[in-house]
Design a protein around this nucleic acid. Structure first.
Length: 318
DNA sequence: TCCCAGGGGCCAA
DNA sequence: TTGGCCCATGGG
């Protein structure tokens, strides 16, 4: 059974670069098929739904969401999933001012924005997924996250077959809490095995639903709660707030620090506090978008600026 | 072989 | 509060 939904991209959300979604930061269980992004979901009733997300530019920009299922899924659950996917793909994210005003008056951001012009920040459907996604990004070359995440889905997600292809859901906390450390480590996550299991166990034991934190409007409180999880420090909490909540944060890691030193502090190392103050004053509520631009394909656009960047961006996933 | 990578926990001062 | 070490794994 199929059901097709068309979600218009409003004027304020343009420019809207769907191609950026197709080619950057595509982590399992999302897969790219042609010009669509495909993923298996398990909805609350326990039924599986395969979602295919595409895009049409003309005559009006529209996100095309195709749902496929083997047993009937209620209209309410279908619409709930369509809403979730629309949020993930930033259908109502007002980026016009950011791209057309903020980026244009800053030499660095102009170069960075030309690289992925109209790119939006993609969020994860579940905060648990964001937390684990950032944990496996700790202290590794970014490229390795793709494999670690894929192995976690293949080993601990649930699988379903559609049109002779196998798709996976993202692992649940319960499944990972019940896994052994060697089983988790077999996903090549190294010493992060105990963080992954630890987060899952804490969620199960204390009956936590991390998605409830999306109702909290105080970003500092959200970060505090996230940092109560094992293996979650300032970097993981900040980046989770961006990709799991779509709220303004600016995470500090090796890459973003280096970008700030090189592009805004004449190559000088400055204390974190100074970066934070600078970012807040200069970009405020847009800081998660400047973070996205400054840390995506940095080596490519920096070269055009005549400012070679020593770190290689792992943003491109295909 | 050694070094390092888009950190966090832990422990000594 | 801060600094140094360790933690797996893979690529240069």
């Amino acid at each position: 059974m199929y059901k097709a939904y068309k979600v218009p991209i409003p004027e304020k959300s343009r420019p809207y670069n769907f191609d950026f979604f197709l080619t950057h930061y595509v982590f399992a269980p999302w897969v790219v098929e042609g010009k669509t992004l495909v993923r298996l979901f398990k909805v609350d009733s326990g039924k599986f739904v395969l979602a295919k997300v595409g895009f049409e530019e003309e005559p009006k920009p529209i996100l095309m969401i195709n749902l496929q299922f083997n047993t009937k899924v209620s209209k309410a659950e279908q619409e709930s999933l369509v809403n979730l996917i629309s949020w993930i793909y930033a259908v109502n994210e007002d980026v016009k001012y950011f791209y057309e005003v903020i980026c244009k008056k800053d030499r660095i951001l102009r170069a960075a924005s030309e690289e992925i012009y109209g790119g939006h920040l993609r969020t994860d459907p579940y905060v648990f997924e964001s937390v684990l996604g950032v944990i496996v990004a700790q202290n590794v070359f970014f490229k390795r996250i793709y494999e670690m995440t894929r192995l976690l889905c293949e080993n601990f997600g649930e699988k379903q077959s559609f049109d002779n292809r196998i798709y996976y859901t993202y692992p649940t906390p319960k499944r990972l809490a019940n896994a052994t450390l060697p089983e988790i480590r077999a996903c090549k996550v190294g010493y992060r095995d105990k963080y992954i299991k630890g987060v899952a166990e804490k969620i199960v034991k204390e009956k936590i639903n991390l998605d409830d934190l999306r109702k909290v409007d105080d970003i500092e409180k959200i970060k505090e709660k996230l940092m109560e999880l094992p293996g979650v420090g300032p970097y993981t909490a900040d980046l989770t707030v961006a990709i799991g909540f779509r709220l303004p944060t600016f995470h500090l890691d090796l890459f973003s620090r280096e970008a700030m030193y090189q592009f805004y502090f004449n190559g000088n190392k400055v204390p974190d506090k100074e970066i934070i103050r600078f970012v807040d004053n200069k970009w405020g509520k847009w800081k998660h978008y400047t973070m996205l631009l400054l840390t995506t394909n940095t080596d490519t656009w920096a070269k055009k600026l005549g400012k070679p960047f020593r770190l290689k961006s792992g943003a491109k996933s295909v």
